[in-house]
Nucleic acid binder design. Structure first.
Lengths: 73, 73
DNA sequence: TTGTGACTTGTAGTCCGTT
DNA sequence: CAACGGACTACAAGTCACA
């Protein structure tokens, strides 16, 4: 399983779990809304800097966005 | 602590712990030798694809290259 | 609210070399 | 063996209009 795919899935799931729109996350992370959309669709492989910014925007550990097995609460 | 810095340190430490040269890791991962050098010096923020390839080349979990606290064996 | 295409810009990543 | 420079190419990063 590619890490890019894992990230894409985790991003979407975590975002929805927190009840946030792509636009809201984009705003908080200082990233364009359509770019977030692209990441969730696996168009790009993000840099670790972007992963970190997205994690901060969603108040979570960057590693949890890359983990194959989602961490339970 | 920036994730880029964490990655840079972990990469160098893990590589040296396995007794590998930058060139050897580069060869195994199919990545340029000078780029590995740059990553260890925090010049660039790698994509998660590169992180994955480097981890595979060193036979370790990609997450361990990004973890603040290095995982024990 | 999200997906998508077309686009520009910046940097990731390569390849040559020298120190 | 590694740091570092310059010149280059590939693709991530970021913007916009529209369905």
């Amino acid at each position: 399983m590619e890490i890019r795919q894992t990230f894409a899935r985790n991003l979407r799931i975590a975002r929805q779990a927190k009840g946030l729109s792509q636009e809201e996350v984009a705003h908080r992370a200082g990233i364009d809304r359509t770019y977030i959309s692209s990441l969730e669709r696996e168009v790009y492989s993000p840099t670790i800097d972007v992963v970190e910014r997205l994690a901060q925007a969603m108040e979570m550990d960057p590693l949890d966005l890359l983990r194959t097995t989602p961490a339970p609460t």
